[in-house]
Amino acid sequence: MNIVVFIKQVPDNTKLKPEQLGEAGIPREGVEMMVNPFDEYALETALRLKEAGGEGSKVSIISLGSGSAKDVVKKAIAAGGDEAFLLTDPVFLEGDNTATALALANAAKTLVPDHHMLLFGQTSLDDGTSQTGPKVAELLEYPSLTACKNAEITGESTLKIMRETERGVEFHEMTLPGVICMMKCDYELRTANIKGVMKANKTQIPVKTPADLGLSSEQVGANASTTTLTRLWQRPEKSAGIKVEEADPTVAVEQLLGFLKTQKVL
């Protein structure tokens, strides 16, 4: 099984300061960056599928981002990925998810032509559109399943996939090649061992531009986008609420019920 995992580098939101959330855009410079949380589950699922797929299976990592995305790609190699590609060009960063989906679909076709499945995280922490995976599937005419929590190989070109929706837990069979978008899974994420880190340090990460993927200037960035951003601003902070420090719980509860009544929730 040849598996492609798409990994995105996103700002670490736990370390952002309010002054970094200005109108200029989602901060990507001078802030701590990390692997998009759901992408870690996509990678873990890919590594498990590779182990189950036996001899000759491989996991390829593709990341579209700035040069610093090399860090998250190296981490993925250290955890067990076999090869990686970085799609880096200023024009890539000007695109929305429609443009990104076109770039990623072309990357999968040209860089890993023998792939069987493409794995994504369910959504990204920064843009949060949840659209890229299904759009890549549509462009490649592949099936897609989102909100997935597990995938196992059941045949030469079939997977059994578990997903969670408004109906409960669903199990689907997918005929490959296909696209799977992963939520948080019930299994633990592996951490890289020293051998993996050494391998990652030695691995060359080829950098690809739109031309390398056969994309014209009409097919990238703003030209290939279908949305226009008009304004970005920090969510207004809530004003401080009431804090009761009261030794007698019944008194505290009385005050709480009084508050809920004034709020008309009781």
Binding site: L16, L125, G128, T228, T230, L232, Q234
Partner: peptide
Amino acid sequence: LDGVKSCLAESMLVSYRTDKA
């Protein structure tokens, strides 16, 4: 049509549109 959504894990809001198509 203008839409507002949250981004960056609910810390920011973005206003945007799909005016090209």
